[in-house]
């Protein structure tokens, strides 16, 4: 297991390196000059040159990339001041240090993701299990069609709808906002309740469908029939034999979902104006803010890769045939 984790971590570093290079060079393929944007309307060539130098984009692109990568590991000095490792530089748009901005935004994203994930995993798997257990009955048909309808919904459609109803029409809750858990647990909970429920509605539907189909597939396995032939009860066979096997596709999808949600749920955060990594990513791209784009990109990629490794490690616990080494 240790060797597996070590090997995968090395692989992850290589992937992150490739992602950083691709992002960096792609950024310069975009025909927008961040210095021009910062310089404003009455820009002189001299002022532009100064801005370029301050931004550090007066050098050739490969040299810039080299400085950027060195900065991440060793820190860098900027006109705005020293930047200790891990240094992603200063935002072109706000002049804030990138790393600190990401750390400030991260708790919002984590709260949104974890709160939503707990609900959609529990409710989604539960509903899927009930549908599979009662397959072919009215219950199954209601669950299946409801989940099909809900999973076809979009957050930017359901979100404003729920807001209009709960916040403006019925006045049950305030506009969603992020309050740190450590400051005000009740405010944290109430502020994120609507986003959680909306994210949960759509993800739950997906997990219901996934867990139902995966269970039904498992129930048709030969070894499930063998367990029945041994006289084990339907319930025992369902939970011990079929459920165990149905976990593998669920864990796979859950890992991917969680990884990408940790990198920022762009649409959800945008819909509810929550200051998380998702809105940060969207803003930084709109502002042609290279250091911020790089920072958010690598941060999000790290989580996706991390959860991929965790999923592979989880396989070994679920399925003894998987050997990690």
């Amino acid at each position: 297991m240790l060797r597996f984790l070590l090997r995968r971590s090395l692989g992850a570093l290589v992937i992150l390196l490739v992602i950083s290079a691709v992002t960096f060079f792609l950024f310069y393929a975009v025909p927008r000059d961040p210095a021009m944007l910062a310089c404003g309307k009455n820009c002189t060539p001299d002022a532009l040159a100064v801005i370029r130098k301050n931004m550090g984009i007066d050098e050739p692109v490969p040299v810039q990339y080299w400085h950027f990568m060195v900065g991440i590991f060793a820190g860098r000095d900027f006109a705005q001041g020293a930047c200790p490792a891990p240094c992603f530089g200063y935002s072109f748009a706000t002049q804030d240090p990138v790393w600190q901005t990401i750390l400030d935004r991260f708790p919002t994203t984590v709260s949104l993701t974890l709160g939503g994930a707990v609900v959609f995993l529990v409710v989604g798997l539960g509903a899927g299990m009930i549908a599979a257990w009662k397959r072919g009955t009215v219950v199954d048909k209601v669950f299946s069609s409801a989940s099909l309808v809900l999973s076809s919904m979009q957050i930017y459609f359901v979100g404003p709808l729920v807001l209009a109803l709960v916040v403006y029409q019925l006045d049950l809750l305030d506009q969603p906002k992020y309050v740190p858990l450590t400051e005000d647990p009740a405010g944290w909970f109430l502020g994120l309740l609507i986003p959680w429920l909306v994210v949960q509605i759509i993800f739950t539907a997906n997990y219901t469908r996934l867990s139902r189909s995966s269970l039904i597939e498992q129930l048709q396995e030969d070894h499930v029939r063998t367990a029945r032939a041994k006289g084990m009860s339907g319930r025992f066979v369902f939970f011990r034999y079929a459920w165990r096997g149905s976990l593998i596709p669920i864990v796979t999808i859950f890992g991917v979902d969680l990884g990408s949600l940790f990198g920022g749920a762009m649409i959800t955060e945008w819909t509810f104006s929550l200051p998380g990594l998702g809105t940060l990513a969207v803003d930084s791209v709109r502002n042609t803010d290279l250091p911020m784009v790089m920072g958010v990109m690598l941060f999000a990629a790290t989580f996706i890769i991390l959860f991929n490794i965790l999923v592979d490690a989880a396989y070994a616990f679920i399925d003894p045939r998987v050997r990690l080494s």
């Binding site: 030969d222 063998t226 029945r228 032939a229 006289g231 003894p320």
Partner: peptide, 22 residues
């Protein structure tokens, strides 16, 4: 259920798929 595996038992064709891998 009380008879299966007890008074009457069955051996299946393909022992690889008929035993649970888990």
């Amino acid at each position: 259920e009380t008879l299966r595996g007890n008074k009457m038992a069955m051996i299946f064709q393909d022992p690889l798929t008929a035993l649970s891998p888990y």
